[in-house]
Design a protein around this nucleic acid. Structure first.
Length: 120
DNA sequence: ATACTGACCCCCG
DNA sequence: ACGGGGGCCAGTA
């Protein structure tokens, strides 16, 4: 998979997160077909132009916690955007999503075929 | 080529 | 709760 395809897949996965829900970097990478590349997701989001309206704020660290340092400008920005979508965000950055995340098309198909079977 | 550095993740004491 | 250590990968110096 070339870098441009990877970038597109990541952005698509992020754009698919519904308002009020959050996903972790690792999960976004996985959904984008890029397992073990959480850092690439972070880097990709970091290079987003601001004011694009792209919902980068729905991506958080594993454990539903904002990745930025509490008190930083970026932290406050992300917190405000999440609050505006109805999530609860504690001052330390812990996020309680208002909505459940939705799976990718692939995952929905797999779920339909195998239910919640989690492996051999 | 080596050496850090990061909007990361996970396990273990 | 909390730090340490390993794994991971793309940029940058």
């Amino acid at each position: 998979m070339n870098p441009d395809q990877a970038r597109a897949a990541i952005l698509a996965a992020v754009a698919a997160i519904p308002a009020g829900a959050v996903q972790s970097y690792g999960r976004v990478a996985q959904l984008a077909g890029l397992p073990k590349r959480a850092r690439l997701v972070a880097r990709t989001l970091s290079q987003l132009p601001d004011g694009s309206g792209f919902p980068w704020h729905r991506v958080v660290r594993a454990g539903d916690c904002i990745a930025f340092a509490p008190g930083s400008a970026d932290f406050d920005r992300q917190r405000a955007l999440l609050l505006a979508e109805g999530c609860k965000v504690s001052t330390n950055g812990r996020v309680s999503p208002r909505a459940a995340p939705v799976a990718t098309l692939d995952e929905q198909l797999w779920g339909a075929m195998f239910g919640d079977w989690s492996g051999p």
